[in-house]
Design a protein around this nucleic acid. Structure first.
Length: 660
DNA sequence: AGCACGCCGACT
DNA sequence: GTCGGCGTGCTC
């Protein structure tokens, strides 16, 4: 009887993306267990490939003679069985390669960490956990959902919450308190939880919330700023006992044992888009993992993404909303350019101005603006049309305040500029950066402390003292107990961007800032009217998501349908499109030539298909990629060096639609 | 990837 | 007659 190791090779080649059988020599049998790293010969005996053992069987599937496993790199298992299953399914969904997913999920080997782990005290066990109730929702609703392995879109508690003791309160965002409390319930039943959040600051917020309700040994953190060693240690820790694994995108791959809860905060945030092959969004990883593990699944946010809205409308997710919590008191003020009733200094309506001024005497006031620094361009002061250079058509800007407008491309001075649309002769900066707004507010609020927070001057927290905090969207500092008042200034400008997800994004920016206010604090939404303003004022944020999804259905745009982008030679792309015959929804876009590609003659097509055909579309495209990958392309000029493969496939890439 | 196998033009 | 060109295909 022979022992056979079935391994997955560490190779990005799609034609090697399957299990290979190797004989296990007698002297390696003790160490060669599922999950360990091994080296195996491939094709010609001299060359070795790294691989992970997926399973050990007595009889393989390969009919020919087997090569032997060369070495077991380390007896510490690096690849948990459920992470292998997850990687396989995630790769299949994206027509990608499983080892690419493993590169995201499994950190490189750390000998010192492994040694420490092998020498650990195996008699130690963590103390039992008594979870606190989940606050802000109807009694027991979220607890029952987690216990029954339910799935839900959860509207977040829209203000900061104090955890910890009354003497030493720990202020955290409402969403962080909810997720920490829910995760504590999972851990109390000795099952693990995995929670993914968009950025580093969110990880810190969530960690603080968790440490207020759980002992430290129950919290394992993964984030991009960790060293490889720290990550490797966290991974091994996650497999020893029930923990809450938290972090950014890669946390969704944490090998937490006996998973009871999978959760995401603010799944619409663009940070969840994976930039590495096979480019699978964290939300999709969560959905695959939930299906495999049967764990409870929570998407927590203020403004619901259209993707989650789709799952709600399918009744695949249920809706959970806070119970008896105070929502921000959003006051929309429609802009009337130049009208009276506006404070001259800072385009702030006088009502908001008075409220902010009053609030800044007592506590911190948050002012949200669109982008850092000063304005980046000029528009006609009358009609708002973008001002362009008469010589080359480039954008006009001012090098410093009060200077003559100048083209930012060719440098020509725009003396005597007249708007080609309305004939007006004056220009104004497009939007206002944080610094400019801070300057203006400084002049208008003499004696008030003004703080600026943006990408280049990040600030996590400000004291709850009288002050005005000017922050770019997404960089708003937290304040214990919440801001006394919030002003949302540049909404109009944020909405002016082109793209499929602009509305969802802007709603997220507004709601996330408004939720930094104290319970029931006023939030002035400047220059915005219509449906969005109404949704904000009523704090009914599922309406816009529903409307938006309805529009996408009509247009056959994601997430109403799924999309695949096919890039490569005209022949390969055309053949792949033909292979998808009968599986698509809506028309095929293209193929059209791709300008910026390194290879001339490269084309791209976008194919839309219904979710029900996903598995078949992915399998078909993977087969096409494998077929094309064996034949190398000859570059024009005769040099036959490494060229891009004839066909590249990417599923669910929203980028081609961002300029629609 | 890399390397072997295989089927058509100019050489001792 | 064969040596070697690189298109095609496989790797347990």
């Amino acid at each position: 009887m022979t022992t056979v190791a079935r391994v997955v090779l560490d190779s990005p080649l799609p034609q090697l993306d399957r299990l290979f059988d190797y004989r296990v020599p007698a002297e390696l049998e003790d160490d060669c267990a599922p999950g360990v790293r091994v080296k195996v010969p491939l094709r010609t005996g001299a060359r070795m490939s790294d691989a992970y053992v997926v399973e050990i069987v007595t009889e393989g599937e390969y009919p020919g003679e087997l090569s032997a496993v060369e070495t077991v790199v380390s007896p510490v298992p690096a690849l948990a069985p459920e992470i292998w299953a997850l990687a396989r399914a995630v790769a299949d969904r994206a027509a990608g390669v499983a080892s690419d997913v493993l590169r995201l999920a499994v950190p490189t080997r750390q000998v010192r960490v492994e040694k420490a782990w092998l020498n650990r005290d195996t008699t130690w066990s963590p103390t039992a956990v008594t979870p606190p109730p989940v606050t802000g929702y109807a009694d027991g609703v979220l607890e029952a959902l987690v216990a029954d392995r339910g799935r839900a879109a959860v509207a977040a508690v829209p203000h900061p919450v104090a955890l910890g003791t009354e003497d030493e309160p720990v202020w955290v965002p409402g969403w962080a308190a909810t997720l920490a409390q829910a995760a504590a319930h999972t851990v109390a039943s000795e099952r693990s939880a995995v929670v993914a959040v968009p950025d580093f600051r969110d990880v810190t917020d969530l960690e603080r919330a968790l440490l207020a309700v759980l002992p430290a040994e129950r919290v394992v953190r993964f984030d991009a700023k960790q060293t490889n060693g720290q990550r490797a240690k966290a991974l091994l820790q996650a497999r020893t006992h029930a923990v809450v694994a938290i972090g950014n995108r890669t946390a969704m791959y944490a090998p937490a044992t006996d998973l009871g809860l999978i959760a995401m905060w603010d799944d619409g945030d663009a940070s969840f888009i994976e930039p590495r092959a096979p480019y699978v969004h964290t939300r999709d990883v969560a959905l695959v993992r939930a299906a495999q593990s049967g764990a409870a699944l929570l998407f927590v946010s203020h403004a619901r993404s259209t993707d989650v809205q789709r799952l709600v409308e399918l009744h695949w997710l249920q809706e959970v909303a806070p119970y008896r919590v105070k929502t921000p008191k959003v006051i929309p003020t429609v802009q009337q350019t130049g009208a009276e009733g506006y404070a001259a200094q800072a385009r702030i309506p006088s009502s908001a101005w008075r409220a902010a001024r009053e609030a800044s005497q007592a506590g911190a006031v948050l002012v949200q603006v669109a982008s850092p620094g000063f304005g980046t361009g000029l528009v006609c002061a009358e009609c708002g049309e973008r001002a362009h250079c008469r010589v080359c058509g480039g954008p006009l800007g001012t090098p410093h305040r009060g200077a003559t407008p100048q083209c930012r491309f060719c440098g020509a001075l725009a003396v005597g500029f007249r708007c080609p649309t309305c004939g007006n002769g004056t220009v104004k900066p497009i939007g206002q950066g944080a610094q400019r707004t801070a300057d203006e507010l400084g002049r208008a609020f003499p004696g008030t402390r003004i703080v600026v927070a943006d990408g280049s001057r990040p600030l996590d927290e400000v004291p709850a003292r009288p002050s005005v905090v000017v922050a770019t969207r997404g960089a708003e500092p937290s304040v214990a107990g919440g801001y006394a008042c919030v002003l949302l200034l540049d909404g109009e400008r944020m909405l002016a961007r082109e793209g499929l997800r602009v509305q969802e994004d802007v709603l997220r920016f507004w709601t996330n800032a408004a939720a930094k206010g104290a319970p029931g604090a006023e939030a002035y939404l400047v220059g915005i009217g219509g449906k969005l303003a109404t949704a904000m004022a009523l704090w009914r944020l599922d309406g816009p998501a529903h409307d938006e999804l309805a529009d996408r259905r009509e247009l056959h745009f994601p997430p109403a349908v799924r999309v695949a982008t096919l890039t490569g030679t005209d022949e390969a792309v055309t053949a792949a499109v033909e292979a998808l015959e009968g599986l698509t929804a809506g028309s095929v876009l293209g193929p059209v030539p791709v300008e910026d590609d390194a290879l001339p003659g490269t084309v791209r097509a976008i194919v839309r298909f219904p979710y029900a055909h996903g598995a078949e579309v992915a399998a078909t495209l993977k087969a096409e990629v494998i077929r094309r990958s064996s034949t190398r392309r000859v570059l024009p000029g005769g040099n036959r060096r490494r060229a891009a493969p004839a066909l590249r496939v990417r599923l669910d890439d929203a980028e081609p639609f961002s300029e629609v």
